[in-house]
């Protein structure tokens, strides 16, 4: 016992210098700002972020109950519900489609993975050019415009009914490559003889998918779902570039991140309220993570 204690202390200097770089960065740029943000969230500051004064901790409660916050929370949840299941289904569909030995299948796999190379700015600008009602592609293709006048008047990103869907479409597309790669890797991990056994049992393609493929893909799908959900909760660039949180006055695409950081947000340059919404966003994400970790249960092997 004494020996063990001595050895623990002996490693300490080495541990200290090895941990110091990470610890300094994480303390200064993650832990400290989080603490500061929590503190700032009960304050009000002038428009330059100076002269902050306490406004009472009930500011958090009031922010959480305010019209704007609840609206943004609703939009965020809608965005998650739109993007995650559809993104997941499309990714699985593409992966199934490409999961065949065919001449040239590598080309198709490369195509399906390709959107992983687009950043949020690149993907959003490509979609802006597709959807923009004045100079956009869809609005200037005669038959599309006739079939769906909404692409021109007022435009998919400008119509309160379609704006969130349009942003979601752009986001789903941008994440498709990521989903495809993961699901394909998951499919390749499924032992081939399981499928053959199912074929021998007379199971058709559809039954094989539901009874063999999907259950074995479970862990992969769970992981992809968690990743997509967290991305969707934190999505910002799409709204910033495609809609600026609009159209107004409905604020159809003002998500929690846009409410917090968007240039056209009503609390723009209002540091105390921004901090409060940011901390509440953190709380929401924490809840989501814990629910998801609970769903995974013991599948992750910590330590």
């Amino acid at each position: 016992m004494a020996k063990r204690t001595r050895s623990r202390w002996r490693d300490l200097p080495t541990a200290v210098w090895m941990l110091t770089p990470s610890l300094v960065i994480l303390s200064v740029f993650v832990l400290y700002p989080l603490g500061q943000a929590i503190w700032l969230g009960h304050q009000r500051c002038d428009s330059q972020g100076d002269n902050c004064r306490s406004n009472g901790w009930d500011q958090y409660v009031d922010v959480a109950r305010s019209d704007e916050f609840l609206h943004a929370l609703g939009v965020t949840v809608k965005f998650v519900v739109l993007t995650v299941p559809i993104g997941l289904a499309l990714g699985v569909g593409l992966a199934m489609l490409a999961d065949k030995y065919l001449r040239g299948i590598g080309v198709f796999r490369a195509v399906f993975s390709s959107t992983v190379a687009t950043s949020v700015a690149v993907a959003s600008l490509m979609w802006l050019f597709l959807l923009q009602p004045d100079v956009g592609v869809l609005a200037n293709v005669g038959f599309i415009e006739e079939l769906f006048p909404v692409v021109k008047q007022p435009g998919l990103v400008r119509d309160p009914g379609t704006a969130l869907g349009a942003v979601a479409a752009s986001s789903i597309w941008a994440n498709l490559g990521f989903t495809f790669i993961l699901v394909t890797a998951g499919l390749q991990g499924i032992p081939r003889d399981l499928h053959e056994a199912a074929v021998v049992d007379g199971a058709g393609g559809v039954r094989r998918f539901w009874d063999v493929t999907l259950p074995l893909l479970g862990p992969t799908l769970l992981f992809v779902m968690i990743a997509l959900t967290s991305r969707a909760f934190q999505a910002y660039g799409e709204m910033d570039l495609l809609t600026d949180g609009g159209p107004r006055p409905q604020d159809s695409t003002t998500t929690l991140t846009y409410l917090t950081y968007g240039g056209d947000s009503v609390i723009n340059n209002n540091d105390g309220l921004q901090a409060a919404t940011a901390v509440l966003l953190f709380a929401v994400l924490l809840v989501v993570s814990i629910v998801q970790l609970g769903a995974i249960g013991r599948r992750i092997h910590y330590a």
């Binding site: 009000r44 500011q59 409660v61 009031d62 305010s66 609840l70 924490l286």
Partner: peptide
């Protein structure tokens, strides 16, 4: 926190009034 967020059932107030 979840309770604050969810069970609060909208105050009907603007965020700008928060804490005031």
């Amino acid at each position: 926190v979840l309770g604050v967020v969810v069970a609060a059932c909208g105050s009907g107030q603007s965020i700008l009034q928060a804490g005031n």
